Simulated assay, not measured.
Amino acid sequence: MKAAVVSEANAPWVLQDVSKPTAGPHQVLVKVHACGVCYTDALLAQGVLSLRPFPMVLGHEGVGEVVAVGEGVTTREVGDRVGLPIMQKACGRCEFCRERHAYSFVTANNCVAPVLTGVNVDGGQAEFVAVDAEGTVLLPDGLPYELAAPTVCAGYTVWAALRRAGANPGARVAVAGVGGVGHLGVQFAKAAGYHVIAMTHSPDKHALAKELGADDVVADGAGLREAGGADVLLHTAPSHASAIDAMQGLRPWAKIILMGISADDTFPLPALAVTSHGYEIIGSAHNGPEYLAEALEIVARGDVKPMIEVFPKEQVGEAYNRLLAGQLRFRAVVDYV
């Protein structure tokens, strides 16, 4: 089969022939129809995150069709349309797993031996991939594979963050950054019925943010304060500086939801403001497969539409290069059919 192989740190993504996997016990073999390219893929390809030796096949936004099932599989069958989120399988034996937590990034970071699709085992940037059946999610009927792919990670991330925030009906939700994750944050927040304030320093994105459903568009924390403030801040930007700045526009008892991985690892807080206004800082990353199922249903209904650029598998290297150059608007999806 063909797969996009990264031979070493900072090497190009090259489509080449590799051995086709088979479905082992409790696994399914998935014919990949599409796979999204995520910023986390770049961190892995560059060696910034190192969880397995090179060469590797990345991809944790894969979607496709089950074409074979292994021994012991009862929850999936041939013909099922599935997504392949990053958390595939926990070890089930360590102290953390004995507490039987839902699959999430918390499980990925606390299980002593997790299996992570496209991270420490081969992922969806290939024509076929074998994964544990429990590491798949059923796709809603009628949801195109190309739109399902970015929902499996980016859409999952922002919807799980909104659910984690637990905001009251009619709350004001600010989305810091209108990019690969933020453009989905604006749409999911609007679909949930919130008053949405998009925050972006890019004037050329103001009209787009309105088209995506933003009620207000501001450039910074001062603008957020003038617009009436926010009860929830979804931090989706690649730098923490914008979120720190946005805090000057938060309302009392606001919640700041941090998600994903930023280029700068520290999050310096204005301690007096956090204490005196009762702010909550909440880490959020996926939080459980039920939220992925909800996100997929919302996209299937048409209430949210990821903005994607689709590349044939022969151009997987170009998709990755456009991600690195910041030229995507907003998610790259590679077609493996």
Rank of each mutant, 00 (worst) to 15 (best):
P140V: 10
P114Y: 01
A293F: 02
G62S: 07
P203C: 14
V6F: 08
C111G: 00
P85K: 02
A219L: 08
R251F: 03
G249P: 03
H277E: 15
L233H: 04
V299W: 06
A222C: 05
V121F: 02
G326Y: 07
G182M: 07
R163N: 15
C35A: 15
V121S: 07
L84W: 05
V14Q: 09
E8M: 13
S239D: 12
A3Y: 01
V334W: 00
G229L: 02
L272Q: 11
V333D: 04
A273M: 13
T157N: 08
D220C: 10
A319P: 03
V196F: 01
E71M: 10
V186W: 02
S19R: 13
P203R: 09
A295S: 14
D215W: 05
P203S: 12
C153H: 05
A34L: 10
R81C: 09
V37C: 11
E314G: 10
H277Q: 15
Y156S: 06
G223K: 00
L184M: 14
L234C: 10
A23F: 04
L250E: 02
Q46N: 15
C38W: 03
D231W: 06
V299E: 01
V112L: 14
T74G: 07
R81K: 14
G229T: 06
V5C: 03
A45T: 04
S7V: 08
E8Q: 13
Y320E: 06
G72F: 12
Q248E: 14
A113L: 07
A171I: 03
A149N: 03
Y39K: 13
M199N: 09
G302W: 09
T151D: 00
N110F: 15
V175W: 02
L323R: 00
A198G: 11
L49Y: 08
G118F: 06
E8F: 07
K210V: 09
Q27Y: 11
A171W: 01
E211S: 15
G170K: 10
G62F: 01
T22V: 15
P150N: 10
V63S: 07
Q187Y: 02
R98T: 12
V304G: 00
A209R: 00
P268E: 13
